[in-house]
Design a protein around this nucleic acid. Sequence first.
DNA 1: GTCTATAGGATGATAGAC
DNA 2: GTCTATCATCCTATAGAC
Lengths: 183, 183
Amino acid sequence: MRQQGVGGLTVSEIARRMGIRGPSLYKYFPSLHAVYDALFARGVRGNAEAVREALEPMPPGLDRIRAGVHATVRWCLGNQALAQLLYWRPVPAFEPSPESFAASAEEMGAARAELADAVRRGELQESADSDDALRLLTILMSGLISQQMANEPDAGYPAGLFARLTDDALDMFLAHYEPTRRS
Amino acid sequence: MRQQGVGGLTVSEIARRMGIRGPSLYKYFPSLHAVYDALFARGVRGNAEAVREALEPMPPGLDRIRAGVHATVRWCLGNQALAQLLYWRPVPAFEPSPESFAASAEEMGAARAELADAVRRGELQESADSDDALRLLTILMSGLISQQMANEPDAGYPAGLFARLTDDALDMFLAHYEPTRRS
DNA sequence: GTCTATAGGATGATAGAC
DNA sequence: GTCTATCATCCTATAGAC
Protein backbone atom coordinates (compact mmCIF):
# COMPACT_ATOMS: atom_id res chain seq x y z
CA MET A 1 0.00 0.00 0.00
CA ARG A 2 2.83 2.37 0.82
CA GLN A 3 4.30 1.91 -2.63
CA GLN A 4 1.25 1.54 -4.88
CA GLY A 5 -1.35 3.47 -2.95
CA VAL A 6 -4.00 2.00 -0.72
CA GLY A 7 -6.13 1.03 -3.71
CA GLY A 8 -3.19 -0.76 -5.29
CA LEU A 9 -3.26 -3.63 -2.84
CA THR A 10 -3.96 -6.95 -4.61
CA VAL A 11 -4.12 -10.56 -3.55
CA SER A 12 -1.50 -11.47 -6.12
CA GLU A 13 0.96 -8.85 -4.94
CA ILE A 14 0.59 -9.77 -1.28
CA ALA A 15 1.20 -13.41 -2.16
CA ARG A 16 4.12 -12.51 -4.41
CA ARG A 17 5.87 -10.67 -1.62
CA MET A 18 5.13 -13.46 0.84
CA GLY A 19 6.70 -15.96 -1.52
CA ILE A 20 3.48 -17.94 -1.87
CA ARG A 21 0.79 -18.16 -4.54
CA GLY A 22 -2.39 -16.15 -4.61
CA PRO A 23 -4.78 -18.98 -3.81
CA SER A 24 -2.85 -19.85 -0.63
CA LEU A 25 -3.83 -16.50 0.82
CA TYR A 26 -7.45 -17.58 0.80
CA LYS A 27 -6.65 -20.02 3.60
CA TYR A 28 -6.09 -16.98 5.84
CA PHE A 29 -8.46 -14.38 4.45
CA PRO A 30 -11.75 -15.10 2.71
CA SER A 31 -11.42 -12.06 0.46
CA LEU A 32 -9.33 -9.01 -0.27
CA HIS A 33 -11.79 -6.92 1.68
CA ALA A 34 -11.10 -9.06 4.73
CA VAL A 35 -7.43 -8.16 4.36
CA TYR A 36 -8.36 -4.50 4.24
CA ASP A 37 -10.46 -4.96 7.33
CA ALA A 38 -7.56 -6.53 9.19
CA LEU A 39 -5.37 -3.62 8.13
CA PHE A 40 -8.01 -1.16 9.31
CA ALA A 41 -8.05 -2.88 12.69
CA ARG A 42 -4.26 -2.85 12.78
CA GLY A 43 -4.38 0.88 12.08
CA VAL A 44 -6.80 1.53 14.91
CA ARG A 45 -4.67 -0.50 17.29
CA GLY A 46 -1.42 1.13 16.17
CA ASN A 47 -2.77 4.62 16.50
CA ALA A 48 -4.30 3.87 19.88
CA GLU A 49 -1.06 2.37 21.13
CA ALA A 50 0.91 5.41 20.01
CA VAL A 51 -1.50 7.68 21.83
CA ARG A 52 -1.46 5.57 24.97
CA GLU A 53 2.32 5.56 25.03
CA ALA A 54 2.37 9.31 24.64
CA LEU A 55 -0.17 9.84 27.42
CA GLU A 56 1.36 7.37 29.85
CA PRO A 57 3.89 9.72 31.44
CA MET A 58 1.67 12.81 31.24
CA PRO A 59 0.15 14.24 34.41
CA PRO A 60 -3.44 15.47 34.31
CA GLY A 61 -3.86 18.72 32.40
CA LEU A 62 -4.43 20.14 28.96
CA ASP A 63 -1.02 18.94 27.89
CA ARG A 64 -2.48 15.44 27.77
CA ILE A 65 -4.79 16.53 24.96
CA ARG A 66 -1.91 18.20 23.19
CA ALA A 67 0.24 15.09 23.56
CA GLY A 68 -2.53 12.86 22.25
CA VAL A 69 -3.06 14.95 19.15
CA HIS A 70 0.65 15.19 18.49
CA ALA A 71 0.99 11.44 18.87
CA THR A 72 -1.83 10.85 16.40
CA VAL A 73 -0.42 13.23 13.81
CA ARG A 74 3.02 11.71 14.18
CA TRP A 75 1.71 8.16 13.94
CA CYS A 76 -0.40 8.94 10.88
CA LEU A 77 2.50 10.55 9.04
CA GLY A 78 4.67 7.58 9.92
CA ASN A 79 1.98 5.15 8.76
CA GLN A 80 0.41 7.01 5.87
CA ALA A 81 -1.09 4.01 4.16
CA LEU A 82 -2.90 2.86 7.28
CA ALA A 83 -3.86 6.44 8.06
CA GLN A 84 -5.52 6.77 4.67
CA LEU A 85 -7.54 3.68 5.45
CA LEU A 86 -8.65 5.21 8.75
CA TYR A 87 -9.28 8.81 7.73
CA TRP A 88 -10.27 8.60 4.10
CA ARG A 89 -12.30 6.23 1.94
CA PRO A 90 -9.70 5.22 -0.58
CA VAL A 91 -11.04 1.75 -1.42
CA PRO A 92 -14.30 1.64 -3.35
CA ALA A 93 -16.95 -0.47 -1.64
CA PHE A 94 -14.80 -1.16 1.39
CA GLU A 95 -16.27 -0.32 4.75
CA PRO A 96 -14.78 -1.54 8.00
CA SER A 97 -16.65 -4.39 9.63
CA PRO A 98 -18.77 -3.64 12.68
CA GLU A 99 -16.03 -5.10 14.90
CA SER A 100 -13.31 -2.90 13.46
CA PHE A 101 -15.59 0.08 13.54
CA ALA A 102 -16.37 -0.57 17.19
CA ALA A 103 -12.66 -0.56 18.02
CA SER A 104 -12.41 2.81 16.33
CA ALA A 105 -15.39 4.13 18.28
CA GLU A 106 -13.77 2.94 21.50
CA GLU A 107 -10.76 5.15 20.84
CA MET A 108 -13.08 8.06 20.25
CA GLY A 109 -14.56 7.36 23.66
CA ALA A 110 -11.13 7.61 25.24
CA ALA A 111 -10.58 10.98 23.60
CA ARG A 112 -13.96 12.13 24.76
CA ALA A 113 -13.04 11.13 28.31
CA GLU A 114 -9.96 13.34 28.18
CA LEU A 115 -12.15 16.28 27.26
CA ALA A 116 -14.53 15.46 30.07
CA ASP A 117 -11.62 15.32 32.54
CA ALA A 118 -10.41 18.72 31.43
CA VAL A 119 -13.86 20.13 31.99
CA ARG A 120 -14.04 18.53 35.43
CA ARG A 121 -10.73 20.10 36.34
CA GLY A 122 -11.99 23.48 35.19
CA GLU A 123 -9.45 23.74 32.38
CA LEU A 124 -12.08 23.83 29.69
CA GLN A 125 -15.61 25.13 29.75
CA GLU A 126 -18.63 22.82 30.00
CA SER A 127 -19.31 22.79 26.28
CA ALA A 128 -16.00 21.03 25.64
CA ASP A 129 -17.53 17.87 27.07
CA SER A 130 -19.66 17.22 23.99
CA ASP A 131 -19.70 15.24 20.79
CA ASP A 132 -19.38 18.45 18.83
CA ALA A 133 -16.20 19.47 20.64
CA LEU A 134 -14.74 16.04 19.96
CA ARG A 135 -15.75 16.36 16.32
CA LEU A 136 -14.02 19.72 16.10
CA LEU A 137 -10.89 18.13 17.46
CA THR A 138 -11.04 15.30 14.94
CA ILE A 139 -11.62 17.87 12.20
CA LEU A 140 -8.37 19.54 13.18
CA MET A 141 -6.47 16.26 13.24
CA SER A 142 -7.96 15.07 10.00
CA GLY A 143 -7.15 18.41 8.35
CA LEU A 144 -3.57 18.44 9.57
CA ILE A 145 -3.01 14.89 8.41
CA SER A 146 -4.86 15.18 5.12
CA GLN A 147 -3.17 18.37 4.04
CA GLN A 148 0.27 17.13 4.99
CA MET A 149 -0.22 13.79 3.21
CA ALA A 150 -1.78 15.27 0.10
CA ASN A 151 0.59 18.18 -0.39
CA GLU A 152 3.90 17.17 1.12
CA PRO A 153 3.77 13.47 1.94
CA ASP A 154 7.52 13.03 2.27
CA ALA A 155 8.09 15.78 4.81
CA GLY A 156 6.69 13.84 7.73
CA TYR A 157 6.48 14.94 11.32
CA PRO A 158 7.29 17.39 12.71
CA ALA A 159 9.01 19.11 9.79
CA GLY A 160 6.09 19.31 7.37
CA LEU A 161 4.59 22.66 6.47
CA PHE A 162 1.21 21.53 7.78
CA ALA A 163 2.23 19.13 10.53
CA ARG A 164 4.19 21.82 12.30
CA LEU A 165 0.99 23.81 12.71
CA THR A 166 -0.34 21.18 15.09
CA ASP A 167 0.30 23.37 18.13
CA ASP A 168 -1.24 26.40 16.47
CA ALA A 169 -4.32 24.36 15.71
CA LEU A 170 -4.41 23.20 19.32
CA ASP A 171 -4.03 26.78 20.54
CA MET A 172 -7.08 27.69 18.50
CA PHE A 173 -9.06 24.77 19.82
CA LEU A 174 -8.17 25.16 23.48
CA ALA A 175 -8.71 28.93 23.38
CA HIS A 176 -12.13 28.32 21.88
CA TYR A 177 -13.08 26.31 24.96
CA GLU A 178 -11.23 28.41 27.53
CA PRO A 179 -13.34 28.70 30.69
CA THR A 180 -13.33 32.51 30.65
CA ARG A 181 -14.43 32.86 27.06
CA ARG A 182 -17.94 32.08 25.89
CA SER A 183 -18.49 29.38 23.28
CA MET B 1 -16.33 8.20 -10.00
CA ARG B 2 -19.32 9.03 -7.85
CA GLN B 3 -20.56 5.47 -8.12
CA GLN B 4 -17.38 3.39 -8.17
CA GLY B 5 -15.02 5.62 -6.24
CA VAL B 6 -12.40 7.89 -7.74
CA GLY B 7 -10.06 4.99 -8.34
CA GLY B 8 -12.80 3.08 -10.14
CA LEU B 9 -12.72 5.30 -13.20
CA THR B 10 -11.74 3.34 -16.32
CA VAL B 11 -11.44 4.14 -19.99
CA SER B 12 -13.84 1.34 -20.82
CA GLU B 13 -16.51 2.55 -18.44
CA ILE B 14 -16.30 6.14 -19.64
CA ALA B 15 -16.64 4.94 -23.21
CA ARG B 16 -19.49 2.59 -22.30
CA ARG B 17 -21.49 5.41 -20.78
CA MET B 18 -20.71 7.67 -23.71
CA GLY B 19 -21.99 5.04 -26.08
CA ILE B 20 -18.66 4.68 -27.85
CA ARG B 21 -15.83 2.15 -27.70
CA GLY B 22 -12.80 2.47 -25.51
CA PRO B 23 -10.28 3.16 -28.25
CA SER B 24 -12.30 6.12 -29.51
CA LEU B 25 -11.61 7.93 -26.26
CA TYR B 26 -7.94 8.02 -27.14
CA LYS B 27 -8.73 10.55 -29.85
CA TYR B 28 -9.56 12.99 -27.05
CA PHE B 29 -7.28 11.96 -24.21
CA PRO B 30 -3.86 10.38 -24.58
CA SER B 31 -4.29 8.34 -21.39
CA LEU B 32 -6.50 7.75 -18.43
CA HIS B 33 -4.26 9.99 -16.36
CA ALA B 34 -4.97 12.82 -18.79
CA VAL B 35 -8.67 12.32 -18.06
CA TYR B 36 -7.95 12.55 -14.37
CA ASP B 37 -5.99 15.70 -14.96
CA ALA B 38 -8.88 17.28 -16.84
CA LEU B 39 -11.19 16.32 -14.00
CA PHE B 40 -8.77 17.83 -11.50
CA ALA B 41 -8.80 21.06 -13.48
CA ARG B 42 -12.59 20.93 -13.67
CA GLY B 43 -12.67 20.56 -9.91
CA VAL B 44 -10.43 23.56 -9.36
CA ARG B 45 -12.58 25.63 -11.71
CA GLY B 46 -15.84 24.47 -10.20
CA ASN B 47 -14.74 25.15 -6.67
CA ALA B 48 -13.36 28.56 -7.63
CA GLU B 49 -16.57 29.47 -9.41
CA ALA B 50 -18.66 28.50 -6.40
CA VAL B 51 -16.50 30.64 -4.16
CA ARG B 52 -16.59 33.58 -6.54
CA GLU B 53 -20.36 33.42 -6.78
CA ALA B 54 -20.63 33.34 -3.03
CA LEU B 55 -18.29 36.30 -2.60
CA GLU B 56 -19.78 38.41 -5.37
CA PRO B 57 -22.56 40.03 -3.31
CA MET B 58 -20.52 40.24 -0.11
CA PRO B 59 -19.27 43.62 1.13
CA PRO B 60 -15.77 43.84 2.55
CA GLY B 61 -15.45 42.23 5.97
CA LEU B 62 -14.77 38.99 7.73
CA ASP B 63 -18.03 37.60 6.43
CA ARG B 64 -16.35 37.27 3.05
CA ILE B 65 -13.95 34.72 4.52
CA ARG B 66 -16.82 32.91 6.18
CA ALA B 67 -18.78 32.88 2.94
CA GLY B 68 -15.81 31.58 1.00
CA VAL B 69 -15.24 28.70 3.38
CA HIS B 70 -18.92 27.83 3.46
CA ALA B 71 -19.04 27.86 -0.32
CA THR B 72 -16.06 25.53 -0.53
CA VAL B 73 -17.46 23.07 1.98
CA ARG B 74 -20.82 23.10 0.24
CA TRP B 75 -19.27 22.64 -3.18
CA CYS B 76 -17.06 19.79 -2.01
CA LEU B 77 -19.93 17.92 -0.42
CA GLY B 78 -21.97 18.40 -3.57
CA ASN B 79 -19.07 17.21 -5.72
CA GLN B 80 -17.45 14.59 -3.54
CA ALA B 81 -15.68 12.71 -6.29
CA LEU B 82 -13.98 15.84 -7.61
CA ALA B 83 -13.30 16.98 -4.05
CA GLN B 84 -11.45 13.74 -3.35
CA LEU B 85 -9.31 14.37 -6.38
CA LEU B 86 -8.49 17.86 -5.06
CA TYR B 87 -8.00 17.20 -1.37
CA TRP B 88 -6.81 13.62 -1.18
CA ARG B 89 -4.54 11.39 -3.27
CA PRO B 90 -6.95 8.64 -4.20
CA VAL B 91 -5.38 7.58 -7.49
CA PRO B 92 -2.03 5.78 -7.28
CA ALA B 93 0.66 7.46 -9.35
CA PHE B 94 -1.59 10.33 -10.41
CA GLU B 95 -0.35 13.82 -9.78
CA PRO B 96 -1.93 16.87 -11.36
CA SER B 97 0.04 18.39 -14.22
CA PRO B 98 1.93 21.61 -13.60
CA GLU B 99 -0.80 23.53 -15.41
CA SER B 100 -3.59 22.13 -13.26
CA PHE B 101 -1.52 22.59 -10.18
CA ALA B 102 -0.88 26.21 -11.10
CA ALA B 103 -4.62 26.83 -11.38
CA SER B 104 -4.99 25.43 -7.91
CA ALA B 105 -2.22 27.67 -6.59
CA GLU B 106 -3.94 30.67 -8.16
CA GLU B 107 -7.05 30.01 -6.09
CA MET B 108 -4.89 29.82 -3.00
CA GLY B 109 -3.57 33.24 -3.92
CA ALA B 110 -7.10 34.63 -4.00
CA ALA B 111 -7.77 33.26 -0.55
CA ARG B 112 -4.53 34.71 0.70
CA ALA B 113 -5.59 38.11 -0.68
CA GLU B 114 -8.79 37.98 1.35
CA LEU B 115 -6.74 37.43 4.48
CA ALA B 116 -4.48 40.32 3.56
CA ASP B 117 -7.50 42.58 3.02
CA ALA B 118 -8.87 41.69 6.43
CA VAL B 119 -5.53 42.59 7.99
CA ARG B 120 -5.47 45.88 6.11
CA ARG B 121 -8.92 46.70 7.39
CA GLY B 122 -7.81 45.95 10.93
CA GLU B 123 -10.19 43.01 11.29
CA LEU B 124 -7.39 40.49 11.78
CA GLN B 125 -3.96 40.90 13.25
CA GLU B 126 -0.84 41.14 11.09
CA SER B 127 0.05 37.49 11.44
CA ALA B 128 -3.11 36.49 9.56
CA ASP B 129 -1.45 37.72 6.37
CA SER B 130 0.86 34.75 6.15
CA ASP B 131 1.23 31.40 4.47
CA ASP B 132 0.81 29.70 7.81
CA ALA B 133 -2.53 31.38 8.49
CA LEU B 134 -3.73 30.33 5.05
CA ARG B 135 -2.53 26.79 5.76
CA LEU B 136 -4.44 26.75 9.02
CA LEU B 137 -7.55 27.78 7.13
CA THR B 138 -7.07 25.03 4.56
CA ILE B 139 -6.50 22.57 7.39
CA LEU B 140 -9.90 23.48 8.77
CA MET B 141 -11.59 23.15 5.39
CA SER B 142 -9.84 19.91 4.58
CA GLY B 143 -10.76 18.51 7.98
CA LEU B 144 -14.41 19.51 7.71
CA ILE B 145 -14.68 18.01 4.26
CA SER B 146 -12.65 14.88 4.96
CA GLN B 147 -14.48 13.98 8.14
CA GLN B 148 -17.88 14.60 6.61
CA MET B 149 -17.09 12.58 3.48
CA ALA B 150 -15.44 9.71 5.33
CA ASN B 151 -17.96 9.32 8.13
CA GLU B 152 -21.26 10.53 6.79
CA PRO B 153 -20.97 11.03 3.04
CA ASP B 154 -24.68 11.11 2.37
CA ALA B 155 -25.58 13.83 4.84
CA GLY B 156 -24.22 16.65 2.74
CA TYR B 157 -24.29 20.33 3.53
CA PRO B 158 -25.32 21.87 5.79
CA ALA B 159 -26.98 19.00 7.66
CA GLY B 160 -23.93 16.79 8.23
CA LEU B 161 -22.62 16.27 11.73
CA PHE B 162 -19.26 17.69 10.70
CA ALA B 163 -20.27 20.16 8.00
CA ARG B 164 -22.51 22.02 10.39
CA LEU B 165 -19.47 22.79 12.52
CA THR B 166 -18.11 25.03 9.76
CA ASP B 167 -19.06 28.18 11.64
CA ASP B 168 -17.62 26.90 14.90
CA ALA B 169 -14.38 26.16 13.11
CA LEU B 170 -14.42 29.65 11.63
CA ASP B 171 -15.09 31.15 15.06
CA MET B 172 -11.99 29.39 16.33
CA PHE B 173 -9.92 30.57 13.41
CA LEU B 174 -11.03 34.19 13.43
CA ALA B 175 -10.72 34.46 17.21
CA HIS B 176 -7.17 33.12 16.92
CA TYR B 177 -6.30 36.08 14.70
CA GLU B 178 -8.42 38.70 16.47
CA PRO B 179 -6.51 42.00 16.58
CA THR B 180 -6.73 42.30 20.37
CA ARG B 181 -5.44 38.82 21.13
CA ARG B 182 -1.83 37.85 20.72
CA SER B 183 -0.94 35.10 18.27
C1' DG C 1 -13.71 10.15 -35.59
C1' DT C 2 -15.41 5.90 -35.16
C1' DC C 3 -14.80 1.24 -35.43
C1' DT C 4 -12.91 -4.00 -34.93
C1' DA C 5 -9.35 -6.69 -33.53
C1' DT C 6 -5.87 -7.54 -30.63
C1' DA C 7 -1.80 -7.30 -27.74
C1' DG C 8 -0.43 -8.24 -23.31
C1' DG C 9 -1.35 -8.14 -19.48
C1' DA C 10 -3.81 -7.70 -14.81
C1' DT C 11 -7.46 -9.11 -11.40
C1' DG C 12 -10.44 -11.93 -7.51
C1' DA C 13 -11.76 -16.17 -6.72
C1' DT C 14 -12.53 -21.43 -7.02
C1' DA C 15 -11.68 -26.59 -7.76
C1' DG C 16 -9.24 -30.12 -6.57
C1' DA C 17 -4.59 -32.66 -6.33
C1' DC C 18 -1.08 -33.44 -2.98
C1' DG D 1 -1.59 -25.55 3.96
C1' DT D 2 0.37 -25.28 -0.28
C1' DC D 3 0.13 -26.00 -4.89
C1' DT D 4 -1.36 -25.96 -10.27
C1' DA D 5 -4.79 -25.00 -13.32
C1' DT D 6 -8.33 -22.36 -14.50
C1' DC D 7 -12.51 -19.35 -14.76
C1' DA D 8 -14.43 -15.29 -16.04
C1' DT D 9 -13.57 -10.82 -16.30
C1' DC D 10 -11.38 -6.74 -16.41
C1' DC D 11 -7.86 -3.44 -17.83
C1' DT D 12 -4.81 0.26 -20.88
C1' DA D 13 -3.29 0.94 -25.07
C1' DT D 14 -2.21 0.33 -30.14
C1' DA D 15 -2.84 -0.87 -35.23
C1' DG D 16 -5.15 -0.09 -38.93
C1' DA D 17 -9.68 -0.38 -41.71
C1' DC D 18 -13.41 2.60 -42.93
